[in-house]
């Protein structure tokens, strides 16, 4: 009796995923290779596009490093300690998911721009430019990817509990030793998933970076901005090829993790 129903559900899900995700992504790949490898090699040899790809990776990696360190720290704070305002902090951490990235970009410009921002003029007078430069782009990327590590690590920390940490303390380990030898190995997979999600999100960030970077060709233009620029300039082949490379990196991250993750996590 349940069988036809089960098959109906399966077909619905498969068709839905195909129309929404698989087919469009496939078309991007197909268009990227419409002229064979011509478009791919063209963007790789174009110095401006190559610079944009390199900048994307630099900004993404920096943002991921910052988000990982702060993410693990804030997760420990949220799970292991009680303090007033904890729920407010928890709600605040989800804000980057709900606020449009373009609003994030505008907000950062308001605070850090070199002429009228709160900190901008002071920072610029000591020779440190934030807006229209890499630091601002890293900040914008950190902001939009902020909750990803935390949302992966918090449930793992909660599940592991603090008994192992207490046992380590009673055996003579200090807080740093306990973290390095007990906590970190226990949350390892949560951190790795968080890093991969953050990296994929950071490489693909568009709105906030567009506002903050100023989109200067060969200087602050990232790969996503290149895709838009090429698309608007009727360079469809270049746009699809760049988009394909971006998608490829993100998919590669997810594939690598699903291969190296332990088949069945031992409880």
């Amino acid at each position: 009796m349940g069988k036809p129903l089960k098959w109906t559900f399966r077909v619905v899900v498969v068709v839905y995923m195909f129309l929404l995700v698989a087919w469009p992504v496939f078309l991007v790949a197909k268009n990227a290779f419409a002229d064979g490898f011509a478009d791919i090699s063209a963007i790789l040899t174009d110095p401006d596009t190559a610079h944009a790809l390199r900048l994307t990776v630099i900004v993404g990696v920096q943002a991921v490093i910052i988000n990982t360190i702060f993410g693990v720290g804030i997760s420990l704070l949220l799970v292991r300690y009680d303090f007033p305002g904890k729920r407010l902090l928890s709600a605040l951490l989800d804000m980057p998911l709900s606020v449009s990235p373009i609003v994030v970009g505008l907000a950062l410009v308001l605070v850090y721009n070199g002429r009228t921002g709160w900190f901008g003029p002071a920072l610029e007078s000591v020779g440190y430019q934030v807006i229209f430069a890499t630091p601002g782009m890293v900040m914008a990327t950190v902001f939009v990817a902020l909750p990803l590590v935390i949302r992966e690590v918090v449930p793992v920390l909660e599940e592991v509990g603090d008994e192992q940490e207490q046992a380590a303390r009673s055996l003579g380990a200090g807080p740093v030793q306990t973290f390095r030898r007990i906590t970190l190995p226990a949350i390892k997979w949560g951190v790795i998933y968080g890093v991969v999600l953050s990296l994929a999100r950071s490489l693909g960030e568009f709105g906030a970076v567009k506002v903050v970077s100023g989109n200067v060709l060969g200087e602050t233009r990232t790969a996503t901005l290149v895709v838009e620029e090429k698309y608007l300039n009727f360079d469809k082949g270049g746009a699809y090829a760049t988009a394909f490379l971006l998608a490829l990196i993100a998919i590669a991250c997810i594939v690598v993790v699903s291969i190296i993750r332990p088949k069945e996590q031992v409880k």
Partner: peptide, 27 residues
């Protein structure tokens, strides 16, 4: 706790799951 030199055994063992039995005992 780490300065009291006490041994503590928990109800739910608190085994270090990522370490072998030997490494647990050697911790």
């Amino acid at each position: 706790p780490q300065k009291r030199n006490v041994g503590f055994v928990f109800q739910h063992y608190a085994a270090f799951k990522h370490m072998s039995v030997r490494r647990n005992v050697a911790f």
